[in-house]
Design a binder for these strands. Structure first.
Length: 577
RNA sequence: UGGGGCGUCGUCAAGCGGUAAGACACAGGAUUUUGGUUCCUGCAUUCGGAGGUUCGAAUCCUCCCGCCCCAGCCA
């Protein structure tokens, strides 16, 4: 019953609808209540101080996705208020990543730094309303005055300065009359608030640092809590979606907007993504890069968008993953296996199949004529007949995978072994008649086989069956390539959980990268362009490395293996022993 | 020991007072020229725990337990 009707049934609009979540429910209610005239306007607000990672992808998909679902808009806004950490390099990288993921902010590319003048005006307003003051305590003193989680703080001796004095001091802060740290502008709220955030939070600090966009225009910079809510307000954002750790900041978000009588967006918090076998905190990712545990932000083992892209992931797979994991408020750790499932699902449909031998074992077909060669027809993608076929050259000397031969095979191994017949995919049945071994190691270095010319294409006219089909490549025609095998960056499912005296870097997987130098690939791959993806049959999905691959020295990255039930059988058998 | 949040299958996650969706993972089986794909089948008498309200509770109330976040002039 596998007709198109059944397929259509499966993808009926109801079932294909993106899953609901608590944010959509809130928006639905807002729309019903005619809030914001039914408008939906979100924003993705990265700080350009690092590269985007898969956790950001969740936020990007959420924000842009909501805008799309509700016929609204989503802005790209850089939250660039700390000039000591932010650079143009990051701005560019972020744009490239968001675009690659498939989202478009059109002309709405904004920067908090563009609002500095307006923000300054707002600060003046706050001072005039008696809601902010210039504090001249040192950073350490401010910390002491703040109190603790269980004890209230105490008021700064500068808290009651006159409005005039505050105005004067704040203007002079801007004018550069003071050194870093000499004064700060603080909101006058409540030093005894049970919410630490509300104990007269700092609004502006002096930093004689050049900003990557505003240069030396400013020497005072607004803090996040002051900037973010007002930036949202200025842009007419309706729903300001952020992660859970900002939940306590919402009180301040609302406070600022209320004091200033500004348009008031709704902040909504959701749980950030955690993924098993990797880390997703900027601090940790930056360490991996700086300490050389990886080759850079775009190392294919990194959970960064650029790393994942270089690894060979598709934007479709990532978007699908973000949809499947859902949006909620409970802390969660998503299984990497789900991401890999989404990837395979996508690649299975679109990646052309090809044959490549990673660890070559020479095979000589004894009864195949010395100088003969022929071309066999291979299907490019059994999942998609429209992708057509190609010719693969066959000759007397071939390579097969070392793993596909065992001299003394265990029970369930049904690949090649002495005396056994198997199929070479799209080619012939071959039988192993002899094994040439290295005299020192005893390792098989060459297999002598015979082939059955009547099985050309892979079917025996007499109907006999073989239990295995192997991939192979003609020695004479093969191209050599470097292949990089990647595995989880960490051996621990949650590397954030560190045992006493250890560091998360202690859990880095020593085998996260395996370099294979002398792989043999079918000749059609010689012209593969950078970033193009293939399925190496029976092995996994691979892509041409975007940085290191050259026409004369091809480099492939293994994106992900195929599901491997044989490996599972081996593992469970090993466990039994 | 202050405040804010959160606890539904191994992992995500629906559920919104009418008797536990779905996905991944896992385990079987079928089909297969990829030990791939696809297709079947199984997988929470129970929702952190204990009471209570109700004809009826994962959903409402009370208490308890556990986990996360906050003491940056970071975001």
């Amino acid at each position: 019953m596998k007709d198109s009707t059944a397929d259509n049934k499966k993808k009926s609009p109801v079932e294909a609808a993106t899953p609901t979540n608590f944010i959509k429910q809130m928006i639905d209610e807002d729309i019903k209540a005619k809030k914001n005239e039914g408008r939906v306007h979100t924003r993705f607000p990265p700080e350009p101080n690092g590269y985007l990672h898969i956790g950001h992808a969740k936020s990007i998909c959420l924000n842009f996705g909501l805008a799309k679902d509700y016929n609204g808009l989503c802005n790209l806004r850089y939250d660039d208020t700390d000039p000591s950490k932010e650079t143009m390099e990051y701005v560019e990288a972020i744009k490239e990543d968001v675009r690659w993921l498939g989202f478009d902010w059109e002309d709405r590319e904004y920067y908090a730094s563009d609002y500095f003048e307006q923000l300054f005006e707002y600060a003046l307003q706050l001072i005039k309303a008696g809601k902010a003051y210039v504090d001249s305590l040192s950073a350490e003193e401010i910390r002491e005055y703040r109190g603790t989680l269980t004890q209230p703080g105490k008021n700064s001796p500068y808290r009651e300065r006159s409005i005039e004095e505050n105005l004067d001091l704040f203007e002079r802060m801007r004018a550069g009359e003071f050194k870093d740290g000499e004064h700060v502008l603080r909101a006058k709220i409540d030093m005894a608030s049970p919410n630490m955030i509300m104990r007269d939070p700092t609004l502006y600090r002096i930093k004689h640092v050049s900003h990557y966009r505003t240069g030396s225009m400013w020497c005072i910079y607004p803090m996040y809590d002051f900037t973010h809510c007002l930036s949202d307000s200025i842009e007419g954002i309706t729903h300001s979606i952020c992660t859970l750790e900002f939940e306590i900041n919402r009180e301040l978000y609302d406070w600022v907007l209320d004091r200033l009588d500004a348009y008031h967006p709704q902040q909504i918090e959701f749980a950030r993504l955690n993924l098993s076998y990797t880390v997703l905190s900027k601090r940790k990712l930056i360490r991996l890069v700086q300490e050389g545990h990886v080759s850079g932000w775009d190392d294919p083992r990194m959970p960064t968008i650029s790393g994942i892209r270089r690894r060979g992931y598709t934007p479709e797979a990532i978007r699908n993953f973000c949809e499947r994991i859902g949006v909620a408020k409970a802390d969660s750790m998503v299984d990497m296996a789900l991401l890999e499932y989404c990837l395979r699902e996508d690649l299975n449909k679109r990646a052309p199949r090809v044959m490549g031998v990673l660890r070559p074992l020479k095979v000589v077909i004894e009864n195949y004529p010395q100088d003969k060669e022929e071309e066999l027809e291979a299907i490019n993608n059994p999942e998609d007949p429209s992708m057509g076929t190609r010719k693969v050259p066959f000759a007397r000397v071939l390579y097969i995978e070392q793993d596909d031969f065992m001299e003394d095979p265990p029970k369930k191994f049904f690949r090649l072994a002495p005396g056994r017949e198997v199929r070479l995919r799209y080619a012939f049945f071959i039988t192993c008649v002899d094994v040439v071994k290295d005299p020192d190691s005893g390792q098989a270095i060459e297999l002598r086989c015979t082939y059955d010319p009547k099985t050309r294409g892979g079917d025996a006219p007499d109907g006999r069956k073989v239990k295995a089909t192997l991939h192979w490549v003609s020695a004479k025609h093969a191209i050599s390539a470097e292949v990089r095998l990647y595995d989880h960056l960490f051996v621990k499912d949650n590397p954030n959980e560190v045992e006493n005296g250890k560091d998360f870097t202690d859990y880095i997987n020593p085998k996260s990268l395996e370099l294979l130098k002398n792989c043999k690939l079918e000749p059609s791959l010689a012209s593969a362009s950078p970033e193009s993806r293939f399925q190496f049959e029976r092995l996994g999905y691979f892509c041409v490395d975007s940085k290191d691959s050259k026409a004369e020295a091809v480099v492939f990255n293994r994106t992900v293996t195929l599901r491997d039930t044989w490996a599972k059988i081996l593992k469970s058998q090993q466990k039994k022993d």
